[in-house]
Structure formats: structure tokens, C-alpha cells
Design a protein around this nucleic acid. Structure first.
Length: 279
DNA sequence: ATGCCGAAAATATTTCGA
């Protein structure tokens, strides 16, 4: 079973590339971020023609998350428990939720497609929102694990955090001046390890980037950053047999600025006919 | 060539992104 995450930066601008890649790479489940549309605007037909069902959560032209899967999806959940909201210029606890989190269960695995807030700048209220969002996500994940006997769960998506200096190849992103690398953001990211989640890709791909800015020849110069992750509970990570970062998807005509990240899982599904089912 | 930013709403300019 092959599971992937990809910030597509507008699915309507990228549908051909995404569907071609799904088929070429034999992907079973894809978590998408920044679909930048409402569900009615999502190019569902192109995915269905390739054998994938779509579940999308989008409120407007900003943000938006979705799943494409050729294995049945169950227990669909938009937003996580306690998820903070945000509205520029507004304050207080009743700000509207943004379309940044979507959960589904596939083949017994709990999967989340997540688009963590950017933060914008060190002085911006958006950074406070980002840190709160990550803390509440951690709390919701911990609560799920407690209620589900530490079952298999993965948080997949664009975390908008560069965990180590080795993950930062962009010379304009500087510790002390930029978001994504601040001690507070790195601590928020690291806190997922405290509730038992591990980076399921790093053991297979120790270095390498997942995003290169469109500007300033960042990709030809390989001045990217690593911000897209698949964090899994131990029971999820135990079934991971391999991982890949699809750097070639940054090339060619009209690429997203992010590339797909894939994990291979040793998990039995209904569609498997090459593996004996033993009960 | 991997090459100097792109998408969407609005309809020219602004917002957002990391």
C-alpha cells in the first residue's frame, strides 16, 4: 500500500500532473493540501476516471485539504477537536475555522491531511495562531491515541516548520529573522515526538527538500526546505517499509512549489490479491 | 535545461505563500 502527501498549490491548476503522477507511481491514498477551491469546484471527474474517490474540504480560494483514494474511506472528519480559528484583524476565541484539516480512515489507518498555518512573520499574530494550532493538533492526536489503544495514525502534510538547519537550504530563511525556523516553531514540531509520533520518512531519506520557492532560481540552485512530513504513531511506523521524496515533480510544465512525499506500507487491503489473508 | 513567482478573486490590483 502506497500513501502520499502533496501540497498541490491549487488542484485546478495541477489536476493533470497530479492524476498522471498517481497512476504512474501506483499510489493508493493521497493527502492533498492547498487545493484552493470549494468541493464543488474540485476536478473530481479526472480522479474518478483514474479509479480514485475524492473527499475535499475547502471553504474559499485559500487553504483547502483533500484525499484521493482507491481504497474505501470511512469516518470522515473535517477539523480536529479544539482546532483554533483565525481572521485577520480579529481577536478573541470565536474566530472562524479555516479548511486546514481533514481526517479519514483507510484500511484501518487513521490519516490526516494537514495544512499548518504559515505564520507570515515573527511579529504577525498569524505566528501565534500557528503555534496554537500545532499545540491543539498535538493534544487532539494524543487524545485519539489514548482513546484508540495507540492505534495506527499518521499526520500528513505541510507543517510549515523546518525542523533542523540541515533542512534549510534557502539563504533568505534565517534563524532569528524568519518564520519556520524559530525555536518556538521547532519546539512545537518536536512536541509530536513527545506523544509517540515519529518521522516515518527520515529513516529512509535523511536529507533533502520538499519545497523550493518559485522565485530566484531556488530549484535550479537547490535552495529548498524540508517542510512536508508524514508523522506516524509507532504502530503506523512499524508497517512502513520504505519512503521516497519525488523531487522530479518540481520539474517540467507548471509544477507545484512542493513535491510529493510517499511511504510504502505493509498493510493488508481488500485490493491485495498477492498476499494470503490469514485469519 | 530544473532558469530568475504563481494562483485566485476580481476584472487591476490585492492577498497569500515560506
Amino acid at each position: 500500500m502506497r500513501v502520499a502527501t502533496w501540497n498541490v498549490n491549487s488542484i485546478r491548476a495541477r489536476v493533470g500532473r497530479v492524476v498522471d503522477w498517481l497512476e504512474r507511481e501506483d499510489i493508493d491514498v493521497l493527502a492533498m493540501q492547498e487545493i484552493k477551491c470549494k468541493p464543488v469546484q474540485f476536478p473530481t471527474e479526472a480522479f474518478e476516471a483514474a479509479g480514485y474517490e475524492i473527499i475535499a474540504h475547502g471553504l474559499n480560494q485559500w487553504n483547502g485539504v483533500a484525499f484521493a483514494s482507491r481504497i474505501p474511506m470511512e469516518d470522515v472528519e473535517t477539523n480536529f477537536a479544539g482546532q483554533p480559528g483565525f481572521l485577520k484583524g480579529a481577536e478573541g476565541p470565536d474566530q472562524p475555522l479555516e479548511a486546514r484539516a481533514l481526517g479519514v480512515t483507510v484500511a484501518g489507518l487513521r490519516l490526516w491531511s494537514l495544512y499548518i498555518p504559515n505564520g507570515r512573520s515573527l511579529e504577525d499574530p498569524h505566528l501565534i495562531y500557528k503555534l496554537d494550532w500545532l499545540a491543539k493538533l498535538r493534544d487532539a492526536t494524543q487524545a485519539w491515541s489514548l482513546a484508540n489503544n495507540n492505534g495506527p495514525i499518521a499526520l500528513m502534510g505541510d507543517f510549515n516548520v523546518i525542523p533542523t538547519d540541515e533542512d534549510n537550504g534557502d539563504p533568505t530563511i534565517v534563524v532569528g529573522q524568519s518564520t519556520h525556523v524559530s525555536p518556538e516553531e521547532r519546539a512545537a514540531f518536536a512536541s509530536f515526538a513527545d506523544i509517540g509520533l515519529v518521522d516515518t520518512v527520515r529513516p529512509f531519506i535523511p536529507t533533502g527538500y520538499t519545497y523550493w520557492d518559485y522565485k530566484q532560481l531556488r530549484f535550479p540552485r537547490n535552495e529548498g526546505v524540508r517542510i512536508d512530513f508524514i508523522l506516524g504513531s509507532q504502530s503506523f511506523a512499524d508497517s512502513v517499509t520504505g519512503a521516497t521524496i519525488h523531487r522530479n515533480e518540481r520539474k517540467g510544465e507548471a509544477p507545484s512549489d512542493h513535491v510529493p512525499v510517499v511511504v510504502d506500507l505493509d498493510v493488508a487491503t481488500e485490493d491485495d490479491d498477492d498476499r494470503p489473508m490469514i485469519f
